[in-house]
Amino acid sequence: MQSNVYFILSFRFIILVLVQVLLLNNINFLGYINPYLYILFILTFPFNGNKSLLIVLSFLLGLTIDLFGDSGGVHAAACVVIAYLRPVILKFSFGVSYEYNSIKINNVEFVQRLIYVGIMVLLHHIVLFSMEIFNTNHIILVLKSTLISGIFSIILIMSSISIFSKKSK
């Protein structure tokens, strides 16, 4: 059972990195807007899993994306931030007892799921873009990129969750 979980996690890691690097990084909608689907790995990591493991894995995930995108460590930093804040956001969106109720992302209410995904995505994007642009003169650009890219990512992540989740009814 346990090894099965690790297998699924590593499979998901590799597939998400390849999809992000080979496909989504080339979309460039309106010139510069790309969705960042790969954080789905952090979003769907088992809710009662080891938190330190998640932080380390998120760092590696971000670093791999950086490696392909020549972007220094911006994705790694953004991923570490949302991986660390994930328990707080989980508590906020699903209530205090999320850890014991064995909640899974594919069988919670739509609104709760949207809040969780939305906060995580926007947090990730704002850290990402402010580190990438790294200039206080371009705050408007940071906010604009965060918003447009964020909406794009949220739509893509929500639809991936509903397409790839097993039927729970």
């Binding site: 790694a76 930093a77 570490v80």
Partner: peptide
């Protein structure tokens, strides 16, 4: 880890 990525950036 954040500081490492920050340094790389």
């Amino acid at each position: 880890l954040f500081l490492i990525s920050f340094a790389l950036t």
